[in-house]
Design a protein around this nucleic acid. Structure first.
Lengths: 136, 136
DNA sequence: CCGTTCTCTGTATATTATAACATCCACATC
DNA sequence: GATGTGGATGTTATAATATACAGAGAACGG
C-alpha cells in the first residue's frame, strides 16, 4: 500500500535529463517533443528517449498517458494503484488523483470474474476548472 | 441514462464492412489489420478505414482501445457512461463491463474539483480467467 | 590479453494516423 | 441544360509514434 519504487537503480544521465525536462514542461509531452528539447544534450535518437522513458515509468517517476501518446512527470507520491488522470482538452494540463474506492471497485470486479488484474488505465478527458471559467 | 445512438444515420457500405469484420474477428484489431482484411472489398486506404471507424465509434457500435491502438465491436448494449475494458495480455480477448458506482465516483470527483468531465477511458490490463487457468 | 557480459547507442524500419487535395454525385439555381 | 455548391468519398503523400536489430565500448574474470 505504500509508495513503492519498482527498482532502486539510480538514474543515469539521460534519464535525469528526460525527467528534468518533463518536470520543467509540467504537461504531457510526446517522445519526439522531448527529443526536440534535448537534441543538444545528446538525446537525439528515438530509442534513447524511449528507453529513458521506459525506465522512468518502471521507477514510477513518469506516467504514460495512453490516450495522448504522451508522458508526464509524476506529481504525486502515491501507491500507483488506480491513479487516474484528468486531461484538459483545452489547455492540456493534467491532474492526477487516486481513490481507494475506485481501486476497490475495479479489484472487486476482477475478483468476481477471475480476471488477473495488472495495470489500470484511467484517463478522464474534459475541461479543467480554469478553462471552464474562461469558458472558451 | 438509457442507451443512446449518437446519430441515427444508417451505415454506409464500408462502415458495414468494417463493423462486420470487427465482429467476425471478435478481438481488438488495428486499423491496418482491417485494411489487410478488406483490401479486396475496397477498403484499401488508411483514411477510408479511419473514417469508417470514426463514424462507428460516434454511433457507439465500436470502441477504440487507447492502450492498444486498436478497435473492437461493442459487445454490450450499454449507456456508454463509464464502460471499462479488461484486456487479456495473453490472448488479446476483451471484456466490457459497466458500473454505475464507478461512474459515480468519477463524476463525484469531477464535480468536487470543477472538472468538466467528457470521455472516460478505463482499460484494465491483465490476464483473463481462461488464460489464468491455462497458467501459461 | 581475451572472451564474456552488460549497458548504452544509433540506423533503419515498422506501425499508426492525418493533411491536403482531387473527384464524384445529388441537389439547387439560373 | 449549364453552373454552382456542399457533402461524402477517394488518393497520395507525409506526419507522428514506436521498435527491431546490431554495433560500440566499458567492466570484469580468467
Amino acid at each position: 500500500m505504500t509508495a513503492r519504487q519498482e527498482k532502486l537503480r539510480p538514474l543515469n544521465a539521460k534519464e535525469e535529463l528526460v525527467l528534468a525536462t518533463l518536470r520543467k514542461l509540467g504537461k504531457p509531452t510526446s517522445a519526439y517533443d522531448l527529443i526536440d528539447e534535448l537534441q543538444s544534450e545528446g538525446v537525439k535518437a528515438p530509442p534513447t528517449v524511449y528507453r529513458a522513458l521506459g525506465r522512468l515509468i518502471e521507477s514510477g517517476l513518469v506516467h504514460r498517458l495512453e490516450s495522448l501518446n504522451a508522458f508526464v512527470a509524476c506529481t504525486q507520491s502515491h501507491s500507483h494503484d488506480a491513479v487516474a488522470f484528468a486531461v484538459c482538452d483545452d489547455c492540456g494540463s493534467v491532474s492526477e488523483f487516486e481513490s481507494e474506492q475506485l481501486s476497490g471497485i475495479l479489484e472487486d470486479w476482477a475478483q468476481k470474474v477471475g480476471f488477473g488484474l495488472g495495470q489500470k488505465i484511467l484517463e478522464l478527458r474534459g475541461r479543467c476548472s480554469s478553462c471552464l471559467r474562461g469558458s472558451r
